[in-house]
Computed example of a mutant assay.
Amino acid sequence: MGKKLDFITPELKEFIENQKLFFVGTAASDGRVNVSPKGTDSFRVIDKNKIVWLNLTGSGNETAAHLLKSSRMTIMFCAFEGKPMILRLYGNAKIYHKRDSGFEKYSNLFPENVGARQIIEMDVDLVQTSCGFAVPFMDFKEERTTLNAWAEKQGEDNIKAYWKEKNTLSIDGFETGIFEG
């Protein structure tokens, strides 16, 4: 059954590396709680207490807005194949934009992507596993290429225009910090 750990074990790191999907949960002190599914080759375990993930352009930018209000973040993985398990990583996160040295520090860990919006770095202070006995089996077919193809077609200038239109404020009106002050 479930366990609580202070760090990501080598076995859990391997589990994470084999997952095709993860979920990110954030919230400010007020407003809506956000849970976002994330895919593609966008997650890295840096060490037993640090992860980073590449946040791609999307229709909203809730995670960024929430992290500016409160650094708390939860990441969840579910085993849809093989042995059942749910894995949650709890911690505090920082957000790096392309203008930040942290973005440059980690960007080489990911495939180049014109839609790359931010890199999120999280210091993990609690790792929790639970049974996952009710999580269904689902077969992975393939990655969706729609978002990356859209970003390529848009190009950098149109992506920035999209950010101005869709990614500067959260649904609760919080600033996302995507552009310098």
Rank of each mutant, 00 (worst) to 15 (best):
M85N: 03
N158L: 11
D6V: 03
I8Q: 05
V24I: 15
L54R: 04
Q154K: 15
K98P: 14
E152G: 06
T57N: 08
S107V: 12
V114E: 14
V135I: 12
E152Y: 05
D100R: 04
V45K: 05
L68P: 07
S130L: 04
A79K: 10
K20N: 15
F133Y: 14
K105L: 12
V24P: 12
D125S: 03
M138K: 09
A161Q: 14
E180K: 11
W150D: 06
R144V: 03
I75Y: 03
I178V: 15
D41F: 02
I8M: 10
K13L: 01
V124T: 05
R99L: 04
G91H: 06
A149L: 13
D139T: 09
M76E: 08
I95G: 08
K48N: 13
L126H: 00
G2Y: 03
F23H: 11
K160S: 09
F80A: 08
D100P: 13
S107R: 10
P111F: 05
W53H: 10
S70R: 13
V35W: 00
E81P: 00
E165F: 12
L67Y: 07
M1W: 01
G91W: 10
W53P: 06
E142D: 13
L12A: 06
E62D: 10
V135Y: 00
M122N: 02
G181H: 09
E180P: 12
S71L: 03
C131H: 00
A79D: 07
E165S: 15
W150T: 12
I16T: 10
I46D: 04
W53F: 15
K13C: 08
R99M: 12
F77A: 08
F23Q: 06
V24E: 04
E104H: 13
F43G: 02
N34C: 11
G132R: 02
N113G: 00
I16Y: 07
M138P: 00
K166M: 15
D47R: 03
S59F: 05
E112K: 13
V135C: 00
